[in-house]
Nucleic acid binder design. Structure first.
Lengths: 206, 206
DNA sequence: ACAAAGATCAACCAAAAGATTGATACGGCC
DNA sequence: GGCCGTATCAATCTTTTGGTTGATCTTTGT
């Protein structure tokens, strides 16, 4: 039984490579390609693939996590297998929480991708062992949840802004910014803005 | 006349895609593939390709810029065309300074890559117009050159370390760290550690 | 041999950041 | 209706950072 696959990646050469690899597997058939999340949704609704192989970073527009969530809301809903270079906790957990059946890194051999697609189509969860342990760890001690406002402050922080500048940008007082920073520092377990930026970037919170 | 090409990328699916694309072009012939800079050097010395198509990030070991410099030191020296997702100034200028004949981003269409390889083989410089203007800008007002010690301090800064912690890590006094930071801030045109981290990351200095 | 650059260190002062304590108002949930 | 979480704000104090001025020693380049 042939499994149909939709490829979603903003790099043409990656799509070419995936097509060459998957076409060589007799049980898989590439039915379409998309360079953006929006294209992926339109094509998936029309072509009804069994599996969507999707990158996380998709240029402008919605990202791979948002694309995954939207794909999983389709009827019928394809299995989504993430294939990306990004391995930060927030991204892995975000993809799984969005409904991805699996998460592979682009460094893997092509036959791992083929096997992953087949297992995703069969309803299995597809994770490399080290990623699986990180997902379990994430379920046990989840990444801190920052409120929208805290994210706003943190993003400005990461551009190098001082508290006064952040206050000005968000139309609040410096005291308010400091209050938000106290919460952010506590949630991230840090005690300086430099550390907060570093942890947030490493884990993919921003 | 057939142009021979060596592919250097740590992602197997990217190499597959490039091979599929280049094999379809009758004037090009892929003669080998490497996943690391070290492999690339060994293969290039043996296969003597006209052009090496090389990514910047190559997993562990030497990076694409170091690989480019080493390839250009071979006799005969192949033309090196960078194909990467990274478009930060320091990386572009670093690759050009290392002797790369050109720099393309992976978002481009396959025929742009084919054309780029042919032009690189012919001795031309291969840059997308927007990258070319940035290279010219880089020649007019080059990125600041930081000393090895300043880079040491900046890297630790980027992990979120306080001045005392950086001093401890480098076995110097806090006064020494502050002195280096004064120079770093001046060279980067910033006035805070957060801004220094941001600018350094955006331009690819760290 | 000399000059320049880099690395090191210090002292002082002002500004910013961070911690603490305390508060009000609003929206959502039970 | 009450509780909880979020967003907002303030005052005070301590710590850290950043800027300035000044210095010595070593290494590098001409």
């Amino acid at each position: 039984m042939t499994t149909t696959v939709l490829l979603v990646d903003d790099h043409p050469v990656v799509r070419s490579g995936l097509r060459a690899v998957l076409d060589a597997a007799e049980t898989l058939q590439v039915v379409g390609e998309a360079a953006t999340g929006e294209e992926a949704l339109a094509l998936a609704a029309h072509l009804r693939p069994d599996v969507v192989l999707c990158d996380l970073r998709l240029g402008n527009g919605i990202d791979g996590i948002q694309t995954t969530a939207a794909l999983r809301a389709l009827d019928p809903a394809p299995a989504v297998l993430i294939l990306t270079t990004f391995d930060r906790d927030a991204e892995i957990l975000g993809a799984i929480e969005a409904g991805a059946a699996g998460y592979l890194l682009k460094e893997v051999d092509p036959d791992v991708i083929i096997d992953g697609i087949q297992r995703a189509a069969a309803g299995d969860t597809v994770l490399a062992p080290d990623l699986a342990s990180r997902v379990l760890k994430g379920m046990r001690s989840p990444l801190p949840r920052l409120t929208d406002r805290e994210i706003d402050v943190l993003r400005l922080l990461a551009t190098g802004s001082a508290n006064k500048e952040i206050a000005r940008a968000l139309f609040v007082t410096e005291a308010t910014v400091k209050s938000h920073l106290v919460h952010v520092f506590t949630k991230l377990g840090v005690d300086s803005r430099s550390r907060a930026i570093h942890v947030a970037q490493e884990t993919g919170l921003i």
